[in-house]
Nucleic acid binder design. Sequence first.
DNA 1: GGCTGTAAGTATACAACGTACATATCAGAC
DNA 2: GTCTGATATGTACGTTGTATACTTACAGCC
Lengths: 246, 246
Amino acid sequence: MDREGERSSAARGGERAPSPRRARLTRSRVLDAAVALVDRDGLAALTMRNLATDLGVEPMALYRYASGKQALLDGMVEAFCAEVYEGLGPPAEGAGGTGRDWRAELHRVAEVFHAVADAHPQVVPLVVTRPLDVPLARRPPAMLRLNEHVLALLDRAGLDDHATLRLYRAVGGWVLGYLLVDRRQVVDNPDEPEPLLRLGLHRLPISEYPRLRALARLLADHDPAEELAAGLDALLDGLGDHRTDD
Amino acid sequence: MDREGERSSAARGGERAPSPRRARLTRSRVLDAAVALVDRDGLAALTMRNLATDLGVEPMALYRYASGKQALLDGMVEAFCAEVYEGLGPPAEGAGGTGRDWRAELHRVAEVFHAVADAHPQVVPLVVTRPLDVPLARRPPAMLRLNEHVLALLDRAGLDDHATLRLYRAVGGWVLGYLLVDRRQVVDNPDEPEPLLRLGLHRLPISEYPRLRALARLLADHDPAEELAAGLDALLDGLGDHRTDD
DNA sequence: GGCTGTAAGTATACAACGTACATATCAGAC
DNA sequence: GTCTGATATGTACGTTGTATACTTACAGCC
């Protein structure tokens, strides 16, 4: 799809597999395999060698599609964002400015983002962490397109630039932050039937952490999608009518 | 904390120097050194060997104070949280229930958190990431005490348990999320005088990212503390009076 | 003093990792 | 066929985390 798709020689009638043994390597094949590997075995298991074996290839072959391990990690963020972007489906702004549903669209972006995070929980650390190191203009296109999309939606609110960016940062922060908090491990020993031991609450002295101990068992008992949406609305409402007294 | 001048006992050869006595190692000395190292040289430079040399010690000595590298990273989060907690100063709830300033206290927590993040930017990835892997009950005491403190503050709002936890997650998410978004790299080439090149905007085709390009130069132009506070208020206002129709 | 048990730090060694560099293999244009 | 560039392999090296075994420092007792 992008400028570097695979070369299609399909126009010819004889579609002979390019290689009888294995399909040619591709950047997206490498990245997808990396995500799959991490989904399966965790981030720590992502080594060049493991990834290479998964692809039936020697480790050094990967360096043609990602210039190093760091670049590979960035590539996984790219794959993640691409999945979000595609998950959004048709641009939906379709024919000429359906003016007022920008808020619903924003909610959809947040929803899909969290859904993809659900599909690839182990990739989340990368998604939240890598943009701290790579400057805006060098982020993967998929991520930039997502950003642009959000800005386009906010544009329909008819705010001035500063207010728009204010909301932009708020939306991004909330989506990422809620993702992080909602995904924190609360269960200590999953096989334990007794809730108190399952959560490991015996480690929390009642005298020091009374409320934490009392509420911990309720921590996971909520509707993430609803809460995500409610927070988003709260931010849009509360920050939308900012006083420009600066 | 014990602070003692350390000397490298470089002189060998059978001479017994009168004062080659190094300060004893300590868990907090190790963790502080780790944070200092990362602040100075970045996360990638944090190796057991580098840390050991900084402390004037052999690498294996560290394993008595942190059972491995992962544990060391967790320890740094611990140090971070401790710094936040101490930065809060006196408990301030002082004499018997000063009822209504819980919101102001919450704002202070958020403020201090961000201030500490400012002091140790390179530790932030760990702070947001580690809790995804370590279950609640195994988190460092400093972090738990912070959590307990926030819960205690929210308690004063007089909500039921579900609403309290709702706000609890929202506050945590917002503080972390805004931290992340606000700290994302936007500058590409810091030494470039021309803003367009400094941000690397020439990499963003106008046709594909019109708004991103137009607004990027304003992205860093805002008051983080004010925005953090405003978002916090928006969430507290918008989520405080939820309808319990679940 | 000297002896001794325990904690603190050292010394050595090793498997696994990322990756530089040189080589082999293959698809298509001539 | 041969040539040529892109693609994948093979080998090798320096670093990393850490297991294991050893040495030193010191407290308490005689």
